[in-house]
Amino acid sequence: MTIGKMMKHKEMMKHPELRQYLPETLWLTPLGALQMLRSHSSVFIKPNHGSGGVGIIRVKRKRNHYEVRYGQKHKYVSSDSVYKAIQSYQKPSQRYLVQRGLRLAEYNGSIFDIRVYMQKPYSKWTISGMVARVAAPNRYVTNYRKGGHGEPLNKVLSNLFKNNKRKVNDSLNRMTKLSSIIAETLNKRHSGIRELGIDFGIEKNGRLWIIEANTRPGHKLFTHLPDKTMLLKIRKNKQLIRKLYY
């Protein structure tokens, strides 16, 4: 089941507890993109139905110009040309949204975010795995298809919070609670969902954000972990879901 990013964002925005964790997200228009760039130093342009980090454009405000980057390609343009530069990397068949950029925390010099893998083989949602997604060097997306790799989440959070166990546990507990709320919120409108990949971002100051929720999540990142417990649980639940519902 594929549901557009904007629809999921709007559904999550309606929940009072989730709202504060969602970065500003609008449909892409020339005015909307420029207004957001005036408020934030960077924005991400995403295809509404994209996955795996494919098609994501980053625009960064510099001192007197903008850097528009798409994968390894980039252009430096003035504010008058920024929307034209964005359009040059877009697919005409796609509708795009613009999302406030986050100053993601780093692990070993690369940005990272967090994937929470949720499944519903029976009547209740369960967290089958949590993993840190570390971007390839100098990349601005963390996805596996774009060179990202999985690292044990506890290790990465301990590194970020300088071995402060309370901060690590607080982050894990908050993500666990928010993941349950997200799953229940989206499931109310879309009863056929049985798997969710929820992506969280943590900024350098420890601030937590919900980046997005994916209804067709990949689980390759879990193959990178030395402990295969989560991977085996995901695969077992996948088999159950296939057997019971498809």
Rank of each mutant, 00 (worst) to 15 (best):
S128N: 13
S88N: 08
Q87C: 08
K91F: 07
Y122I: 02
W125V: 08
K124G: 02
V116Q: 04
I114F: 12
S88H: 15
M130F: 07
Q87L: 05
S79H: 14
T126F: 00
Y122A: 10
S88Q: 14
R100F: 01
G109K: 11
K91V: 00
S93L: 06
Q90Y: 09
V131K: 10
Y117W: 14
S81I: 00
I114M: 12
I111H: 08
I127E: 10
V116S: 14
L104W: 03
V82Y: 06
D113L: 05
S110F: 02
A105D: 09
G109Q: 06
A136I: 03
S81F: 06
R100C: 05
V82I: 14
G101H: 11
A136H: 14
S88K: 10
R95F: 07
Q94R: 07
A136G: 13
K91L: 13
R103K: 15
P92Y: 12
Q99C: 12
M118E: 04
Y89F: 15
K91Y: 02
V98Y: 05
G109W: 13
M118D: 06
Y122M: 10
I86K: 08
V98F: 09
M130A: 11
A136F: 15
I86L: 12
R100Y: 03
S128M: 01
Y117P: 03
R133F: 12
L104I: 05
E106R: 08
V134S: 11
K84I: 00
Q87P: 05
S88F: 13
K124C: 09
G109I: 01
I127W: 06
A105Y: 00
I127N: 08
R133T: 04
S110A: 06
M130S: 03
A85D: 09
K124T: 05
K120P: 03
T126S: 06
Q119I: 08
K124P: 03
T126V: 12
